[in-house]
């Protein structure tokens, strides 16, 4: 069994010496690193200095922003704001108004609605006066089309061929 003894100062000094022996090398590396970083930084600064004249020239010449652009952006913000806070019914009304506007405005919308209503009425109720109109235009509303017989006499034509 090995007897455990406290290390003497000589024993410890071995480690200190070893440590000292490495110090100069580490310091040298550190110094080299610092110098390299400094050189690199200096070089980068020089590069930046050289280019800064050009960058500054580019920055000073940026055109002023058109006031109209700000107005347009804020109008968009208002719309987005409206959409965020609007109820579904309000949104539907807004979209309908936009649709009507695209249709051609109020006069077009009235014409469109009137013709739509008239079409629906005629279709559902088939009023008596529709007969007189159809007879005036010589339209036989109840003409039947036979799909089994000759259609426009095409059968006869094909037979001849």
């Amino acid at each position: 069994m090995v007897k455990k003894t406290n290390p003497s100062s000589d024993d410890i000094s071995v480690f200190f010496d070893a440590a000292k022996g490495t110090m100069p090398k580490d310091h040298q590396d550190l110094k080299n690193n610092i110098l390299r970083d400094a050189e690199k930084t200096n070089s980068e600064l020089n590069t930046l200095d050289e280019l800064s004249v050009f960058f500054e020239a580019s920055k000073v010449g940026v055109p002023k922003v058109n006031r109209d652009l700000e107005t347009r952006i804020l109008r968009d913000a208002d719309r987005a704001h409206g959409v965020m806070n609007a109820s579904p019914v309000r949104l539907w009304i807004d979209q309908s108004l936009v649709f009507l506007k695209e249709l051609g405005g109020f006069p077009s919308a009235v014409g469109f609605t009137a013709s739509l209503a008239a079409g629906v009425c005629i279709g559902f109720y088939s009023p008596d006066w529709s007969d007189s109109i159809t007879s005036f235009f010589l339209i036989d509303a109840f003409d039947e089309v036979s799909f089994t017989g000759s259609f426009l006499g095409l059968n006869e034509i094909f037979e001849d061929i």
Partner: peptide
């Protein structure tokens, strides 16, 4: 855009802008 610049400065800047661009 920059009314404070002299005409010569403006020309220089324009050349620099062009060069950088």
């Amino acid at each position: 855009t920059d009314e404070t610049q002299s005409p010569a400065d403006k020309i220089d800047d324009h050349y620099r802008q062009k060069a950088l661009y």
